[in-house]
């Protein structure tokens, strides 16, 4: 469960204070599929960084599974990211010249999981994204965009995190492939994974069950879709 309470983030450039988030509060329950939507410059990237424990808020509290993440040290944040967060990026960020399996298993290295178990868990994660098995030993740069993003999703899944954070996951894909990736998220959500999708595209956000609109650093609207 994610509880954000009056989160603010202010950047200090030279003498100038730039407030980016101006008191954001919302709660995301386990198993939800939420889209955070807003135009560029709305602060949604900053919000994602805070949600993903890559950054800490200037003020306010962020409870992730009842643990206050807002005031942790860099090292503690790394532990949170390792155990509780799975990232999916717009540009995939796969290791080039490495096999699909190795890419997916990479986060487990930092959890000191033994090699055989890493491979097994990477395979399971890949199966749940629907990538065909004959691709598992391919090098990541031999894959198509859609395949790469599914590898990236598998990598986010492999540690069995509390939250999967996807930052514009379809931004580098054509519409058809994007739909495929969004379907993957949908299926994962059906299996109980909590997914937060950050996007500026209405069409993409529509796939989630709940949309939080951000504008100028504040929550503009928070609407749950009627379950279809």
């Amino acid at each position: 469960m994610i509880v954000l309470d009056k989160i603010t983030k202010t950047y200090f450039n030279a003498d100038e204070e730039v407030p980016v988030l101006k008191g954001i509060s919302f709660t995301i329950n386990d198993g939800e599929y939420v889209a955070i939507m807003g135009p560029s410059g709305s602060g949604k990237s900053t919000l994602m960084h805070i949600l993903g424990a890559l950054d800490t808020p200037t003020n306010g509290s962020y409870l992730l599974d009842n643990q206050d993440v807002s005031k942790l040290s860099e090292k503690e944040l790394a532990h949170i990211r390792k155990d509780k967060i799975g990232f999916v990026f717009q540009s995939f960020n796969l290791l080039p010249r490495s096999t699909v399996i190795r890419n997916v298993a990479l986060p487990l290295i930092y959890s000191r999981v033994a090699k055989e178990e890493r491979t097994e868990r990477a395979r399971q994660a890949l199966f749940s994204t629907g990538l065909s098995e004959d691709r598992f030993s391919h090098l990541s740069n031999q894959l198509s965009g859609g395949q790469m993003q599914r590898v990236a999703i598998a990598r986010a899944l492999v540690t069995n995190p509390s939250l999967i954070l996807a930052d514009e996951p379809t931004g580098n894909l054509d519409t058809a492939t994007g739909e495929l990736v969004l379907d993957t998220f949908k299926q994962l959500n059906d299996k109980g994974h909590t997914i937060v999708l950050i996007t500026h595209e209405r069409d993409v956000a529509e796939h989630a069950n709940r949309i939080i609109y951000i504008k100028d650093g504040s929550v503009l609207r928070d609407e749950a879709k009627k379950s279809s």
Binding site: N93, P107, Y110, S111
Partner: peptide, 16 residues
């Protein structure tokens, strides 16, 4: 740099 960023995002500590 991006690889380092990714590694940190998936939980690598500074010492790693």
């Amino acid at each position: 740099t991006r690889e380092i960023g990714l590694r940190k995002a998936i939980g690598a500590e500074e010492s790693d």
